[in-house]
């Protein structure tokens, strides 16, 4: 079965996920949540994996840190890759670990040429350790920084060229970052290299409750209509790609998420029909 549209797997939906037999359905998890010696979470993931394709989407490798990826973390990730045989492994263009402390967020950095070399090296080390290609996701951004030698799309293209990695395009992150930092989301998605894109993310965002006017990538709401429009624009150009609905906060019933997932599946099916 070819994975079409998938869902981020939440622990409250394990049984629903095992029972669901929608065509093309796949699931994605953060491997960090399964980095334990044993326990029921791993058993539940085995049950889901026995029925559906799985993607491992890392949030903790800190590829944009000025340090090699943590060896223990890589070993734990490799063990999960070997055990669950995911069809995709992905990580973020961001850092979270700094001098031994882990900040549970995906933090920004100046996209300098020196940073490019460092991050390409980290992606190369990761791919070597896992013995497979990884996809790199564009982050959501909140702070305008100086010191960029390359814009984000050119930086991602350079990483693809240097390491052979692929891209995970988070369309909601494109929308949020473009709005927060004041550039064109359409121009961004139009510039992405089609052949490198291996997966697409869709999620909901919200306006900062602190009153800053910033849009925040909350994963706490349905996908917004302008994000659907941006998604359609992207897939009509590049063709169908496995597409994930992410929801991590204010999580509704499984069927509610499946309805959003089915909408993504319909968008993909419509592409096939017109031969994109």
């Amino acid at each position: 079965m070819t994975p079409t549209a998938g869902l981020g797997l939440k622990s409250q939906h394990y049984d629903d996920a095992v029972a669901c037999d929608a065509a093309g359905l796949w699931f994605e998890v953060h491997p960090e949540n399964y980095m334990s010696a044993g326990g029921p979470r791993l058993a539940a993931l085995e049950a889901v994996r026995a029925r559906h394709p799985l993607s491992l989407h890392g949030v903790g490798l800190s590829l944009a840190a000025d340090a090699n990826p943590d060896r223990q973390h890589l070993a734990a990730l490799k063990a999960l890759v070997d055990r669950f045989e995911p069809f995709v492994v992905s990580e973020h263009l961001a850092w979270s670990t700094h001098r031994g402390a882990h900040q549970p967020d995906l933090l920004p950095f100046p996209r300098s040429r020196a940073a490019l070399v460092r991050i390409a090296d980290n992606i190369g080390r990761t791919q070597d350790a896992l013995a497979r290609r990884v996809l790199i996701e564009n982050p959501s951004l909140y702070l305008p920084l100086k010191g960029h030698d390359l814009d984000e799309v050119d930086f991602l293209k350079a990483l693809v060229a240097a390491t052979g990695c692929g891209l995970l395009v988070d369309v909601n992150n494109v929308f949020v970052s473009a709005r927060n930092l004041g550039y064109s989301a359409e121009a961004y998605v139009d510039a992405l290299p089609a052949e490198a894109i291996g997966e697409i993310h869709l999620a909901g965002h919200g306006l900062d409750e602190g009153g800053s006017g910033l849009l925040i990538d909350t994963h706490g709401a349905p996908v917004a209509e302008p994000v659907w429009a941006l998604y359609r624009r992207l897939v009509r150009r590049v063709g169908p790609r496995p597409t994930l609905i992410e929801r991590d906060d204010d999580i509704p019933a499984f069927q509610v998420l499946m309805a959003e997932r089915d909408r993504a599946a319909s968008e993909l099916a419509a592409l096939e029909a017109v031969g994109v």
Binding site: D105, Y142, L145, K146, D208, G210, L214
Partner: peptide, 15 residues
């Protein structure tokens, strides 16, 4: 050194 002249720190608060 990495912040533009009109960069507020609201983004930092988000992180």
């Amino acid at each position: 050194p990495w912040l533009g002249p009109d960069a507020g720190l609201a983004g930092l608060t988000v992180y």
